[in-house]
Design a protein around this nucleic acid. Sequence first.
DNA 1: CAATCGTGGAA
DNA 2: TTTCCAAGATT
Length: 295
Amino acid sequence: MRRRVLDWYAVHARPLPWRDPETTAWGVFVSEVMSQQTPVGRVEPVWREWLARWPTAGDLAAESPGEVVRAWGRLGYPRRALRLREAAVAMVEHHDGEVPQDEDALRSLPGVGAYTAAAVAAFAHGRRTVVVDTNVRRVLARTLQGRAQAAPALTAAESRLAAEVVPQDPETSAVWNVAVMELGALVCRARSPECEACPVRDLCAWVAAGRPADDGPPRRGQAWHGTDRQVRGAIVQTLRESPDAIARAGLEHAVCTRLRLDPARHAAQVDRCVGSLVEDGLVEPVDGDRLRLPA
DNA sequence: CAATCGTGGAA
DNA sequence: TTTCCAAGATT
């Protein structure tokens, strides 16, 4: 199993820029945060802009939150941009401006959870960690458990299983971690798995079982139309595109127009979302009734 | 533990 | 057209 996956990766790995040996730990760190819940294909162009503009943690730490959110563009979940900047500040203040190597130190940074800490320790520093992302969970669920998809949330049994299959040698373990992720992203995909092209199809428990459909509870889809998330997104997008602060009434109008919502019916919702964005530090009130990205 | 938090492309 | 979901983190 391990040899097959490692050999497959050696041939089929995508040439992502942050996999270049020349890429710094900071570059890897940025790529991991940007890739949280965002397809890597969408991350790549923004990552290039960021690394050219802010080549080190110190460079980003010195930037204003608003500029960082603006440069985040449409990657989604803009709070990640704020936390990435806060993580850079923490690196400057507590880690001599460098990306920590220790998994626990990484985990303590803003916006860094179990996955990102393990990934950065492995891919930026060559540490032996157990990287468990959505790809790894799906690959292990299929190959070892014979299930179509992993459980809705990460279970202790899953973590144990993932830890067992990571090679002992640190160098090999890092390649293994990224290789399983890549296999899940390119071949063992969630929707249309390409088992014919899979290096471990002949020892995959799911294939052996005839690729049974998922037997778990149906996943409730994320509601979108008319939600606060949609409204928040439109607010931040509008402010991102405006070099100047915008009056509250003008912002409400712009957001409702953008989303084709009745202003009379949704003014309160827009207002409430502005409030939550201010609390999150994504929006800043100025001059009494005007709003902008935080300076 | 479950809800919340953006966005856009593919099925 | 609607649905699914992608290198998760936080509360």
